[in-house]
Each structure stands twice: as C-alpha cells, then as structure tokens.
Amino acid sequence: MIWQLDLALLIIVVISAIAAITVKDLLSSAILLGVYSFLLCLLWTEMGAVDVAFTEAAVGAGISTAFFIGMIYQTTRRTKD
C-alpha cells in the first residue's frame, strides 16, 4: 500500500461522485458513475482486495452503466430539478 496513491485516488473518487450528482445531463451522470466505479476498482486493487475490485469492474462499471443508459431511453435526457 502506497498512501500517496491511495490519497490521490480517493480525492478523484470524491470529485467524480460529487460531479455525478451535480451535473444536469443524465447521460453524463451515468458515465460519471461509471468513472466512479472504475476509480473505486483501482483503489481496491491497490489495497489488495482483487476479488472485490473484479466484481466492481464487472458489475458497477459494466452492467449498471448499461442499465442506466437503457433507463435514459425511457425518460428525458435533462433533469428538471
């Protein structure tokens, strides 16, 4: 474990999480959640939890991004609030 790399990854994770809930475009929000999942996957790999990181890459970044994009087809692309 390298704490400088941990800290840098954690800061980018927090930034992408905040960006995902503040952005108005729903498609950008879904892609930012995918970015968040991949960064979390990197963080877990760096901490040595390879199995958790693999699950996060397969489910969080792969499948759930596809589900969100399929969901955006059903609604408008921009949020009202």
Partner: peptide
C-alpha cells in the same frame, strides 16, 4: 484466481447486452 460464477455470469450477460445495443 479472482472471479467466479457471479462475475463470469455478469460478463456473459454484458456480451449479450452489447448485441442488443
């Protein structure tokens, strides 16, 4: 190695979702 039924099934489903898209 890392992996297993759940992750492999997710990847297998993702390949099918790619064809749907």
């Amino acid at each position: 190695s890392p992996g297993g039924g759940f992750q492999g099934g997710c990847i297998l489903g993702a390949s099918f979702i790619l064809m749907v898209m």
